[in-house]
Design a binder for these strands. Structure first.
Lengths: 121, 121
DNA sequence: AATAGTAGTATACTTTTGTATAGTAAATTC
DNA sequence: GAATTTACTATACAAAAGTATACTACTATT
């Protein structure tokens, strides 16, 4: 394949865009990420609260996912030096902004469902 | 837990929203969905074109993913009755609209990267 | 008749993701 | 001092997702 063909035809997405999409996908993919982020948005901040709010999640998964979200800069773990210690998980500013992605997903999903139902009936 | 507490505190996301997010997640999750959708948006419509455009994807995965996208109403498979047969994959209208989700993801990803880099340096 | 292009499928395998179940440790209430 | 609450960890396992490699079936070109 010639360079010209490369230039004219093989349009590629800028690499930063690819990385950005992958970062986002990483943060929202899996069975529990969205429920956890949504729960945090709804003001459920303690381990126990999250566990109660998210049906069927095991403590192992909750712990694992929270660690991953923390590592990805989406969540911060705060230890309050009270007795007994209280631990809170909070969304970072970035974390809160994932709301906009969820919003786009809800919008697409609703519209898509409508279309698919239309196409069947 | 009382019904009142349910009502006052356990705010829940409307079920249709949850379903909508899950539908969207289903369509975009995995290693190859986004590259495939992006390639289709860029006008790569034949199996071979997609295979060449998406580095390292095996024909097995490409075939599997295209089938899944078709089943989900995101892609249509068109057989042209020429000799030799030409087969094209095209995004449905819903499929094209996933662009808006990708857009939100790029935006969040870029911003997040900027913040994370800022917080390290 | 042999080679190449298009559009895949088949089989076996590895890796990643998620589940099930039980247990720990510190403090707090009965 | 026994049970309960909070915040987890440990081990073993099952299921889903992805990879590697080879192969097929049809047509077209040389």
């Amino acid at each position: 394949m010639s360079d010209l063909k490369d230039f004219l035809e093989v349009k590629k997405c800028p690499i930063q865009y690819v990385l950005a999409v992958n970062d986002t996908l990483n943060v929202i993919s899996g069975k529990w990420k969205m429920p956890i982020i949504a729960s945090l948005l709804y003001g459920k901040n303690r381990f126990k609260d999250l566990q109660e709010n998210i049906e069927k999640i095991t403590p192992r998964m909750l712990s694992k996912e929270l660690k991953e979200l923390e590592l990805n800069g989406v969540v911060v773990r705060k230890v309050y030096d009270s007795t007994p210690v209280k631990i809170e998980y909070r969304l970072t500013e970035s974390g809160k902004r994932i709301y906009s992605v969820m919003d786009a997903m809800v919008e697409w999903g609703l519209e898509h469902r409508k279309n698919v139902v239309d196409s069947i009936t």
